[in-house]
Amino acid sequence: MLRLPPFRFLRPGSVDEAADLLAEHGDRAMVVAGGTDLVPKMKRGQMEPEVLVGLGHLTELRAVHATDGGGVEIGAGVTLTAASSDRRVGADHPAYTRAAALVSSPALRNVGTIGGNLCVDTRCNYYDMSVEWREACGFCMKKDGDICRVAPASKHCRAIASSDTAPAAIALGGTVVLVGPGGHRREVSVSDLYQDDGQFYLAKAPDEIVECLRLPPPGAWRSSYVKVRRRGAIDFPLAGAAVALAMAGPVVEGCRIVLTAVGSRPFDVSAAGEALVGRELTGRELTGEDGLLADVAAEAAKVAKPLDNADLHYVWRKQMTRRAVVQAIVEAAGHSPALAALA
């Protein structure tokens, strides 16, 4: 079988100590939470840390609690199962719990954490392979090589941002608290955690650890997340749309749309949703008769530039991005997904 290469495992007493250990060991070290992303990648030689700093045992990372302003704070070590089944979070932020519940499979969600999911590696089928396969193919710039195999003219890696919860957290206006060496803490929007580069996809410093995710009080915002994938029991997203609508009765007062799996970072395409602001979302709009939602979706999906580095045809993935947007809007507006099928 594929063997795990040797590494040193460190067990810090706190998040602060973990950040210090990261700083101490530099780029030879990585943190590991549930390990569902990292461990298989170590077996395939995609990541070769000599030192792993464990977070799994830190109970301080495993709490969910209400914040003073009516929001919620979810520790980075909370498992996807726990987060997705939290009633309070589910009532206020359905897009988030839905996204968490749609990650991979039950077994992996029992182990995988929400922090690990925010930091999950970008994906590409020229890269998510064993070292032997990649050697046969020719290495690419994300690991061990210097060109991009799927887009040889590209100056940077185009691997696909594949977190399900990140787009939901962004659409909900979420922030994360990052802990750096010396106990230094800063809070940034989830969106600012990412940059559009498949190789260096996280905008944080390598020795910063995500301590928790904060979601503000929902107010008038209603939300949903729609995921496109081949098999509902296991697969990564081929496209995903998180939509939050601020509703005053049937009238849209605000719209946020965030896409995942369409590029190397989650894309906030809320500008495309402007067209909905001030509009009533009832019959005609939702059945797609007037083409409003289709137009919004087409505009939103413009950023999606799928390449031949994931499952199914890239043209189909682009088409499905539009459908996911329409469906997520309809669901967020509180209507049945069956209506979206007509759009």
């Binding site: 089928n125 998510d128 392979m129 064993s130 396969w133 081949r230 098999r231 296991i234 697969d235 499952d311």
Partner: peptide, 8 residues
């Protein structure tokens, strides 16, 4: 796709 995740 010589892997169980990618070979559907």
């Amino acid at each position: 796709q010589p892997s169980m995740l990618d070979y559907k």
